[in-house]
Design a protein around this nucleic acid. Structure first.
Lengths: 326, 326
DNA sequence: TCAAAAGTGTTATCCTTACACCCATGT
DNA sequence: ACATGGGTGTAAGGATAACACTTTTGA
């Protein structure tokens, strides 16, 4: 076994900031020049096979040390091992190692106020602008993405079908969960700057250099981090519907409107107000506190709390937020 | 980096044999004694970081070479990295390496007739007898599992709740998807022989020795393979409901009854015949062939085929086999 | 003729989705 | 008074889940 394996743990840490669903990003410093990277990446740490007992503990430990807060909800996403799409070797100080990425999803309540150096809360829409349908169908899909994909798609029927289904062209409905498939399609079609960079490195080129990118196609990230982010966002969007994970993003007390805006920010679609309330109330996941919110214009709203105890008491804490499109 | 990392790929390969959902198992040979193991395990292969481009390709290649057939549907399950629950080191010929298990799920149509040496199609009920509710609630839950868990459960409320919810005690409904959580509970409670073995090895004991086990608690497997199998079964049961994966287990033509029996064998619950048909027909996932089946007693049944083309044509090939309990 | 398995018809109930409308507060 | 956001009522349509029943074969 000549080539050693290095396992990199990457975390998609999601929290709400100013009403937007954000992800914690870092700009790693180049060890030689001490310059921070122009591209953002996910919090990342190598797994120590000697000392660390589980991935889970290693990840929590790593994040706590780097950002000074403790992760609550954590779940494993996927393990990426494709050659040619691995993390930059420099990151982990390994010479000719094969780097395997284990991605994790973590959710944090809004309260936390971490600002370790070189970290930032970035709205995910910066990386996937086409995923935000809250204000209706994003124009850039038809003005930019569709034309850019035309040449690639017309090479086969299956490509055409994929583009149509994933980007909701020609009347196909939008499916907000397929974030990863959309990103992978753009990567395959060469429209993600990461693709060009990976090809370049495969040919023995120099380390990744940031280059101009089309804003409509989203900002690229370091190594395979945008791929992991897409996996995390898709997983979260799916999970909302059958597990009450959304409450991991809320504070102790919240209004139903705030809850709805959070679901909308994550899922990227607008919801029908009245029906959203009914669904939430029917599942009895929340409980009114009697207290009122101190306003932002209009009638004061009642504050609610998540009845966390039902997680142990009830069979399937189903939320089944059957996304009620407006 | 003193301790090298070894990545083991393990496959849960599911197929139907004689109407039962089975999983392909192997009995590895001891390299010294040339004896086959008394315990079964999953097909397993080390990942070569030098030569192999992706896990997916590595797994397919490995299975094809070992069993002479090509995998169709393949999906990654989970990556297990807990210290103390790793694969036996002897298996991969690595000295003091840290072994990480990447589990995969694969589905194979019944047709295939592989019989490589030392491999076997084992019904999953041998490993998880409590998961089969097709003939109603299994007696062993109340006669064996409940009493065996009593002492462990009474130590805290949360333990009691977990047992009640997962094993459907005291009127709690059965949730067929939580296969892994049930196995992990039994492991934690010390009722899986694997737990004793792992503890023993952690104390520097000799390699695992098979020992007597309670049949009601299922047969143990090599290393962490029963954990991976539980993950696979749970994932498959969940996926049935929102993706038409069940057809990966069927031949080209099948009767609706055969389809129903397959779903029942996988999900472990009995379904309502008439409503099952209605659901299948409404989704237009299948198409009648006009031909009739050559019987097994009673009126001949029409043969159907899976309309595979809808995978590219339709938005969400939802099957939503909302499990219609009888 | 009867057992066995295939296949059809019908109905109450619940959930989804949409509609319209009223309430409490700040300016 | 009126704009703003909070909150309620009601009803059509469809999916679910449960009934009971007929049809076609082999023995």
């Amino acid at each position: 076994m000549s080539v050693p394996i290095v396992i990199g743990l990457s975390a998609v840490i999601v929290a709400l900031r100013d009403g937007e669903a954000c992800v914690l990003t870092v700009r790693p410093r180049d060890t030689r020049t001490d310059q921070t990277s122009t591209l953002e990446g996910l919090p990342f740490g190598p797994f120590d096979p000697q000392g660390q007992r589980t991935f889970d503990l290693a990840l929590r430990d790593y994040v706590t040390r780097q950002t000074r807060f403790e992760l609550g909800y954590v779940e494993q996403l996927y393990t990426f091992g494709d050659k040619g799409r691995d993390a930059p070797l420099a990151d982990v100080g390994a010479g000719a190692a094969r780097v395997i990425s284990v991605g994790y999803l973590a959710l944090a309540p809004t309260a936390l106020d971490t600002h370790a150096p070189d970290t930032n809360w970035s709205p995910w829409s910066r990386f996937f602008p086409w995923e935000d349908w809250r204000a209706g169908r994003p124009e850039l899909i038809d003005t930019q993405i569709r034309p850019a994909l035309e040449g690639w798609a017309e090479r086969s029927n299956s490509r055409r079908d994929r583009v149509r289904l994933l980007f909701a062209l020609d009347g196909a409905p939008w499916n907000e969960e397929r974030v990863l498939e959309r990103y992978e399609l753009l990567y395959e079609a060469g429209l993600a700057p990461e693709a060009a960079r990976d090809r370049h490195r495969a040919l023995g080129g120099a380390p990744a250099e940031p280059r101009a990118f089309t804003p409509a196609l989203g900002e690229p990230m370091i190594s395979d981090h945008r791929r992991i982010l897409a996996t995390g966002l898709g997983r979260l969007r799916g999970k909302l519907k059958y597990r009450p994970v959304i409450f991991e993003l809320m504070g102790e007390a919240f209004t139903l409107s705030a809850l709805q805006r959070t679901v909308e920010a994550v899922s990227g679609v607008a919801l029908h107000k009245q029906n959203f309330r009914r669904v939430v109330e029917r599942t009895s996941l929340v409980e009114g506190l009697g207290r009122m919110d101190e306003e932002t214009g209009g009638r004061p709203a009642e504050l609610f709390r998540f009845r966390r105890e039902i997680l142990n008491a009830r069979p399937a804490p189903g939320l089944s937020l059957s996304l009620l499109r407006e």
